Amino acid sequence: MKDPQADVVAGKQLFVQKCGSCHTLARAGTKGTTGPNLDEAFQQPVKENFGETAIRGVILKQILFPNRLPNSDGIKMPAKLVSGQNAHDVAAYVASVTAKGGKDTGRLASAVKAAGAGTAVEKAGVLSIPADPGGQLAFAAAKATGTAGPVTIEMPNKSGTQHDIVIDGLGKGAVVANGTSSFKATLDTGKTYTYYCSVPGHRAAGMQGTLTVK
């Protein structure tokens, strides 16, 4: 099935959720490093006016039948992370924005909610800092507050992207997908801590935040 009228808004949402943890694509706001940087990968074809339709075809083929060879870390892209019309939607969106400057406009600009805007607050000895449920490399809250003393720090992760939560010197939760990473710690009065995801490439992509103890 090939649909030239693919839904690029749905394509952007699916790309961020399914592909953004591995690929950098500036217009989508993703910073994954496991797979190729898609802006760099298609920079020359775009410069040479290869054509959006042709680029879309290349992307679709890679989604459905990815390179069988793993990268330098031994990680291989799974086939058909998206399929059917979803694959066409993703391919159409990526082809329309790859290696292009500026920002998405119109409906595309609001297609994916920005992560990290909230503040997590400790309640009854539990500080819950969710991972972005859409699969972005970010916590739902880039700031958190807590009180001095014993606390359970947890990171619910409703996405299929693997994450953990770590505070150096305090503790490290397990790496989970569709689960909860947690550890117990004792917070010191007046201190500021940095929490982050230790999965390779995630902290560098911006998956970290600041915990302030009152």
Rank of each mutant, 00 (worst) to 15 (best):
V97Y: 00
T119R: 13
S182P: 02
G171S: 05
G102C: 06
H202C: 07
K100R: 14
H202A: 14
G84Y: 10
G206P: 05
K191G: 07
G149Y: 10
A140S: 14
A204D: 15
A115T: 05
L127A: 06
H88E: 15
L108V: 09
P130H: 07
N178P: 01
G149I: 14
Y193T: 09
T147L: 11
Q85K: 14
T152E: 13
S96H: 05
I165W: 00
G171F: 06
A95L: 00
D89R: 00
Y193A: 12
S96P: 09
I167G: 11
S159C: 09
N178E: 12
A92E: 03
S198Q: 11
A87I: 12
V166T: 13
A120F: 02
G106W: 07
Q208F: 12
L137F: 06
S128T: 15
D89I: 02
Q136F: 06
K172Y: 01
K184Y: 03
G146E: 04
I153P: 01
T180C: 11
V175E: 07
V97T: 13
A117V: 10
K184V: 13
G190R: 12
P130E: 09
S181V: 12
T119L: 08
A141H: 05
H163I: 12
D188K: 14
G135W: 01
A120R: 01
T161H: 08
M207G: 07
V90T: 10
D104A: 12
A111E: 01
A92Y: 02
A204P: 04
D132W: 00
L127V: 05
G116M: 11
A115C: 15
N178L: 11
G101E: 08
G101M: 08
G101D: 10
T105V: 10
A87D: 09
T186P: 08
I165G: 02
T145E: 13
Q162I: 12
A177R: 11
L108T: 06
V121Y: 04
A95E: 00
D104L: 06
A114K: 15
V112I: 14
I167W: 03
K143S: 15
Q136E: 08
Y193R: 03
N157R: 09
S159I: 05
L137P: 01
A138L: 02
A174H: 06
T180K: 14
G209Y: 03
G179H: 02
V175M: 04
S181L: 08
G125P: 06
D164P: 07
G149M: 13
G190F: 09
D188N: 13
K143N: 14
T119I: 15
K172H: 09
L187I: 13
L108S: 06
A111W: 00
Y193W: 08
V121L: 10
E154Q: 15
S198T: 10
A140M: 04
G201L: 07
A99I: 08
A91N: 02
S182A: 14
G135V: 04
G209V: 05
G125T: 10
F183L: 10
G116W: 06
G160R: 08
A177M: 03
T192V: 15
Y195G: 08
G106C: 11
E122Y: 09
A111S: 13
H202V: 09
V126F: 04
G169C: 06
K143Q: 15
A114N: 13
D188I: 12
A174F: 01
G135Q: 08
G134N: 15
G206I: 11
Q85H: 08
T152A: 05
A114C: 06
V90R: 04
S96F: 04
